Simulated assay, not measured.
Amino acid sequence: MPFLHLVTIVVDDYDPAIDFFVDVLGFELAEDSPSLTNDGRAKRWVVVRPPGAETGILLARADGADQKAAVGSQVAGRVGFFLRVEDFDGTYARLAAAGVAFVTEPRTEEYGRVVVFLDIAGNRWDLVGPA
């Protein structure tokens, strides 16, 4: 049965992105391996994922002007990523204490509690928890 294995987030640099996703969001570092670009230059294959998740995020360092321009705007300023948690208030407080930038105030919607935050690259995420 097919499933979504990876999505890519283009970042300025690997290590600050790993720190954000692992130390701040609590993801696991699933892989950090040396690799090569299509034209033979060194890069890293870096995958993070929430604990227990099958789908991961490939953290890809921007390579060239077009990719650098995409950092933080991969979904044209929309919320493009959704992190579902069981403890909304605790997670919100932990992220706020870690200095995560929130774009909105927490609110309650039909589908649960939600607040919009920015990742290390500037992409918008919904933090979503039970109503």
Results as ranks from 00 to 15, higher is better:
Met1Arg: 01
Leu4Gln: 06
Leu4Val: 06
Leu6Arg: 04
Val11Tyr: 02
Asp12Ile: 06
Asp13Tyr: 02
Asp13Ser: 15
Asp15Cys: 07
Asp19Pro: 07
Asp19Lys: 14
Phe21Asp: 12
Leu25Asn: 03
Phe27Trp: 01
Glu28Gly: 11
Glu28Met: 02
Asp32Gly: 06
Asp32Ile: 06
Ser33Asn: 14
Asn38Met: 12
Asp39His: 11
Ala42Val: 08
Ala42Trp: 00
Lys43Arg: 13
Lys43Asp: 10
Val47Gly: 11
Val48Pro: 04
Arg49Asp: 09
Ala53Trp: 05
Leu58Ile: 08
Ala60Trp: 14
Gly64Asn: 04
Ala65His: 12
Ala65Tyr: 05
Ala65Ile: 12
Asp66Phe: 00
Lys68Trp: 03
Lys68Phe: 04
Ala69Arg: 10
Ser73Ile: 00
Ser73Tyr: 06
Ser73Gly: 09
Gln74Glu: 13
Arg78Ser: 06
Gly80His: 05
Gly80Glu: 11
Phe81Ile: 03
Phe81Arg: 05
Phe82Arg: 04
Leu83Ile: 11
Leu83Asn: 09
Leu83Ala: 00
Arg84Leu: 13
Glu86His: 15
Asp87Cys: 08
Phe88Trp: 08
Asp89His: 12
Gly90Pro: 05
Tyr92Thr: 10
Tyr92His: 15
Arg94His: 09
Leu95Cys: 00
Ala97Cys: 07
Ala98Cys: 04
Ala98Val: 08
Gly99Tyr: 10
Gly99Asp: 13
Val100Lys: 02
Ala101Gln: 12
Val103Leu: 05
Thr104Asp: 14
Thr104Leu: 12
Pro106His: 08
Pro106Met: 02
Thr108Ile: 13
Glu109Leu: 01
Glu109Ile: 08
Glu109Ala: 08
Glu109Gly: 05
Glu110Tyr: 14
Glu110Phe: 03
Tyr111Pro: 02
Tyr111Asp: 10
Gly112Lys: 04
Leu118Val: 04
Asp119His: 04
Gly122Gln: 02
Gly122Ala: 02
Arg124Ile: 10
Arg124Pro: 01
Gly129Thr: 15
Ala131Gly: 15
